[in-house]
Computed example of a mutant assay.
Amino acid sequence: MPVSIGLPIVSTCSVDTCGFNHDANCHAGAINVSATADGTHCVTATHTDTPAGREALAAVGACSRTDCKFNDAMVCNATEIQVGADFDTAHCLTFATA
């Protein structure tokens, strides 16, 4: 099912331990990004060896990192984002301070 409501896609994901990651592509359907004490995280990341998700690439459903230049009313307006691994968390690598 293609994303047709104008949400940015997750163009790449390097979180190998996430069940939604298949061949460096996120298949969660939609992800949420959140601000935490140590960064900007994809809170949808599910650390499992069990494959999960759909065929379509994931979109960014919501982002609570309001200090990001791509955040407009808690919606990401970047064309696409990249998610990357850092220890046991999944970070939004596209985050840029407003």
Rank of each mutant, 00 (worst) to 15 (best):
A35M: 05
A28C: 12
L93V: 14
D88W: 08
A73Y: 05
V3P: 00
D49N: 11
D67E: 14
F87S: 09
E55V: 15
V33C: 05
T44E: 01
G61S: 15
D38V: 06
A73P: 00
T97E: 15
G61Q: 11
S14C: 09
P8E: 10
S14A: 04
A90D: 15
T97S: 07
D72Y: 01
T17K: 12
H47N: 00
L57N: 07
H27S: 04
A28Y: 04
K69S: 03
A56D: 11
C92K: 13
A35Q: 04
A35I: 03
A45H: 13
C63Y: 04
M74V: 11
G39V: 13
H41V: 07
T36K: 08
T36S: 05
G19D: 11
G53H: 07
V15M: 11
P2S: 13
N25V: 13
N25C: 08
H27Y: 08
H91S: 03
E80A: 15
I9Q: 14
T46Y: 11
D72F: 06
D49V: 01
S34C: 10
A85S: 15
K69C: 01
H22L: 05
N25W: 07
S14E: 00
F95Q: 00
H22S: 01
G39E: 01
V33H: 08
K69T: 05
V10N: 00
I81C: 04
D49C: 09
A62Q: 10
L7N: 06
H27E: 10
V15A: 06
S14L: 05
I81S: 05
T12V: 14
L7P: 00
C63F: 05
V33Y: 03
A35L: 07
